[in-house]
Design a protein around this nucleic acid. Structure first.
Lengths: 94, 94
DNA sequence: TTGACATGCAAGCCACCGCTTGCCTATACT
DNA sequence: AGTATAGGCAAGCGGTGGCTTGCATGTCAA
């Protein structure tokens, strides 16, 4: 099902990656790594971030495109709609 | 932070519990167990469901109250707002 | 072409998570 | 009182997830 979505946002590092991409869209892998260390205090290896990005891509939350020797990543929040449509976020009327 | 929230909805069984409570609010533990088996094809033990409910309570997604020898559970979708306010779910304007 | 740079691939390790099992407590019924 | 019901507590096990490590691939610049 949309199991990939919930698994993707379950990890705090992946959520920070989404935050970073919302703040600055179209970053490359290296750019993401350095900015995650700077602004989010995350000290993971490049491979770790790369694996996180794979999970985010599988969930459709990140769209990536290879360009030369760089790979750029963009945020896509559309899969998140599945969450709000599944459960009522507002208090129910009595 | 709101780490409990994302951890709570990461598990498919817990998401089914939320579905069940939205469909029929105020169920007891036993009622939840049997209905999860019937309608959702989930065959977990009572203890497993109980532990799932603990996680959901920690996230604030389920409010429980003990009444006699029963414990009733209600759905609360308000914590889900944190997700929609954190990331833009709609396509961004260009 | 040689080297440096940006990324990919794959195997292994360790901690956590979901689940079971067994026993215990508390409330209701007769 | 005794018994059945509804639920809680705690220890243990197996599988998965996140991370590292090491090496391979591909691209650009000199």
């Amino acid at each position: 099902m949309d199991d990939d979505l919930y698994r993707a946002i379950a990890d705090p590092t992946r959520r920070a990656i989404l935050d970073e991409l919302v703040d600055r869209d179209g970053q490359s892998l290296f750019e993401l790594c350095s900015r995650l260390i700077m602004k989010h205090g995350i000290s993971s290896s490049r491979q770790a971030i790369s694996q996180h990005l794979e999970v985010l891509e599988a969930a459709g939350l990140v769209v990536a495109r290879r360009e030369g020797r760089y790979k750029f990543h963009w945020f896509n929040g559309e899969p998140l709609k599945a969450i709000t449509t599944r459960w009522p976020a507002n208090a129910k009327k009595r």
